[in-house]
């Protein structure tokens, strides 16, 4: 269960302050909505540890997340774009989800290949992200998130601008994760995304 209570963030340049409250339990998906600039992405970045809160609490399974650096948090983020390293092949991008030094065993390689099949990218392992369509790139990003298998998934407009097929596949994958007990926080403008995935809603105001 992920809880955040009076989680305050101050933008260094504008001095604007945001406060977040909410919680989401195992096997649930929390949809965060609200107008542009209300701090949806900021919330995700606070949970992931890319930004640091000024005060308040942020807990995962009763453990305080705030002292932990991003790589020690049980979190995987998927952004709208820029998830992949363009200089690395699809294989390596996925491999990094398993071992940061790309020291992969035979079984790890098998897992990567299986995951590629699962997201419908069979045979694309040697391509580079720049050779893929936007939809294909996002499939790779989600595939890596699943390979990492962290119990907390942070999705920041992950399906925006994708073709209906890809959307369908990715939504299904996310639902599967949720059913296996993962906690999902979803930021999306798209009502159908929210409707098809979310169990709880958090509406932020500007």
């Amino acid at each position: 269960m992920l809880e955040f209570e009076n989680l305050r963030f101050r933008y260094p340049e504008t001095e604007r302050v945001l406060t977040f409250n909410g919680e989401v339990g195992a096997g649930q998906c929390l949809a965060v909505t609200g107008p542009s600039g209300c701090g949806k992405s900021t919330l995700l970045n606070l949970v992931a540890g890319f930004l640091n809160a000024e005060s308040g609490t942020l807990r995962w399974q009763e453990q305080d997340l705030q002292p932990l650096p991003p790589w020690e948090r049980p979190v995987t983020s998927v952004f709208q774009e820029g998830n992949l390293f363009d200089h690395l092949s699809v294989q390596d991008n996925l491999g990094l989800g398993i071992h940061p030094g790309l020291k992969l065993s035979r079984a790890d390689n098998a897992a990567v290949a299986a995951m590629l099949d699962k997201v419908g990218l069979h045979g694309m392992a040697r391509r580079h992200p720049t050779e893929l369509s936007g939809g294909q790139r996002q499939r790779v990003a989600v595939a890596r998130a699943l390979l990492r298998g962290t119990p907390l998934l942070l999705l920041d407009e992950p399906f925006t601008g994708l073709d209906p097929d890809t959307r369908q596949i990715l939504r299904q994958l996310i639902r599967d994760q949720r059913e296996q007990g993962a906690v999902i926080v979803l930021v999306s403008h798209d009502a159908s995304d929210v409707e098809s995935l979310a169990d709880r809603h958090l509406v932020l105001t500007a």
């Binding site: 992931a48 540890g49 890319f50 991003p70 790589w71 952004f79 774009e81 998830n83 390293f85 989800g97």
Partner: peptide
């Protein structure tokens, strides 16, 4: 910046 964030999260240090 996104690459750097993803790298942090992936423990690419």
């Amino acid at each position: 910046p996104n690459s750097l964030r993803v790298a942090d999260q992936l423990n690419l240090r």
